[in-house]
Design a protein around this nucleic acid. Structure first.
Lengths: 271, 271
DNA sequence: GCAAGGCATGAATCTACAT
DNA sequence: GATGTAGATTCATGCCTTG
């Protein structure tokens, strides 16, 4: 086993600090991260849902909140399916490289993009461990009445090497004494009002981080959004690292992180 | 709209009868079906789960029942991931060709294969409509205690052209007056004791066939197994067509079909 | 008839060791 | 090392039997 000091040194090889978030494009950022240095990645990539050519302004999107359009903002525009595929392959390849051999990755999606995500994860060398479903009991009804109401979101959990972390007992305890299953009903903590259109609730990240990482390990989020992953990681005494390209979300994430205190104090930032 | 006589004629172009099942390999069989002739396809393909090189005999498999191995039978063996990919591409391409422009397809799977299925459906030109999840409350616990209990199976619903059938009101009625959602809890009719290791319950096929086809249309299953799709289609007054490569399953399917009576009598077999 | 208890069932996966 | 394989391990649910 690699000791903690050694791991942090390697992260610093390229001058990067942990327990800090960065205002940067994810692929450029990931290229700066050393090989085999991250324990857990949580990625909630753009879903490539925004089909319209009318690019609504970021300010509109944040002020409107839920507006029943599929335009999620400029960050969710790709000019073609091919471009989206290339982009996905790039960041998943980087994820594979920066993960430790014992590390694992979570990728969020819906039926619009999750099959491509699973296909790419497999192609790049990950071993899929589970598909988890967030059962959204408060899903938007289907307006056209021509399909079923999509009331779930998918999460693929996959590992890089031949071993992975799974805190079985903690999950069993959280699930009232029986094994935690793949369909997750609504949890309790939400983390407050949504400020990002695809923001995940805190209970979901809590469960993911507790299940598949240990205290003191490094959790990285390449698509931070409003920073839920980093906030929860910090609360749960993990080291965090993240990047976000949209200035407004980056500011929100910074603010949210400022007011979070870990369960116990740990020296994390090196340098 | 194409009339019924015309449609049946086209099926017969190559000498094939509907409301009959065939003991044949799916790809060879599908090649004999005319273009644009099928209304609905339900496909429960091999999941490529049988990893061991020790190929247990079919007789062993059926007589033993549960033996805690992942060997589902010779039909689930592929020598490589590449071979499985090629096989999948072939039957999905055939499915696209034989479906009417208004037709749709359902593909079953688990996280082992469902991402490849979704990827291929998209690649071949299908438009995905929904991902439906069968929530299995009696799922096998995780023996190794190293993952979450997989308590769901996935079904992708996709259409060939720009229109599809969705019997909204019947689904709403079946769901107690509210819109049918994407996570399906256990239904009532089972169809009796399982004779195929991956047999689907009848309520599931009932829901699928009622939702996405109309009476008198043609429902095709390229991986019939013990024949649940054909049995339910017949009960629901649809025309059925199916093939199965394993002799024992084909015999079982034939027997099951013999004792089924449609809701009302319809002249189906031509010739 | 109902409750309690036993038993059969279930679309695997990990570790250790041999080649 | 890499690849392959034998052997060990698990527990929630539903149904059936018994009291």
């Amino acid at each position: 086993m690699e000791n903690s000091t050694h791991r942090k040194k390697r992260i610093l090889d390229k001058g990067m600090e942990i327990n800090k978030i960065y205002h940067q494009d994810c692929i450029a950022f990931m290229k700066e991260i050393s090989d085999n240095s991250i324990d857990l990645i949580f990625a909630d990539p753009p879903y490539n849902l925004s089909k319209s050519n009318f690019k609504i302004k970021f300010s509109q999107m944040t002020s409107k909140g839920t507006d029943l359009t599929t335009n999620k903002g400029e960050w969710d525009f790709f000019t073609s399916q091919e471009e989206y595929k290339n982009f996905s392959e790039k960041w998943i390849k980087q994820s594979f490289r920066i993960l430790k051999n014992t590390g694992s990755i979570w990728v969020a999606g819906t039926y619009h993009n999750i099959y491509l995500m699973g296909f790419m994860l497999n192609k790049i060398g990950f071993t899929l461990l589970n598909e988890i479903l967030w059962h959204k009991t408060d899903a938007t009804p289907n307006i056209s009445c021509s399909r079923f109401v999509a009331d779930h979101e998918n999460f693929i959990w996959a590992r890089k090497g031949n071993h992975h972390t799974f805190n079985y007992d903690e999950m069993k305890k959280l699930n009232g004494g029986t094994q935690m299953r793949s369909i997750w009903p609504k949890g309790k903590t939400s983390g407050g009002k949504k400020v990002h259109p695809t923001q995940k609730p805190e209970w979901l990240l809590e469960r993911i981080i507790i299940a598949t990482s240990n205290e003191g390990e490094i959790v990285f989020d390449p698509f931070m959004g409003s920073g839920t992953t980093a906030v929860v990681a910090k609360k749960l005494n993990r080291n965090y690292l993240g990047c976000e390209i949209v200035p407004e979300y980056f500011r929100i994430a910074t603010k949210r992180l400022d007011i979070v205190r870990p369960k116990s104090i740990q020296l994390c930032i090196i340098g």
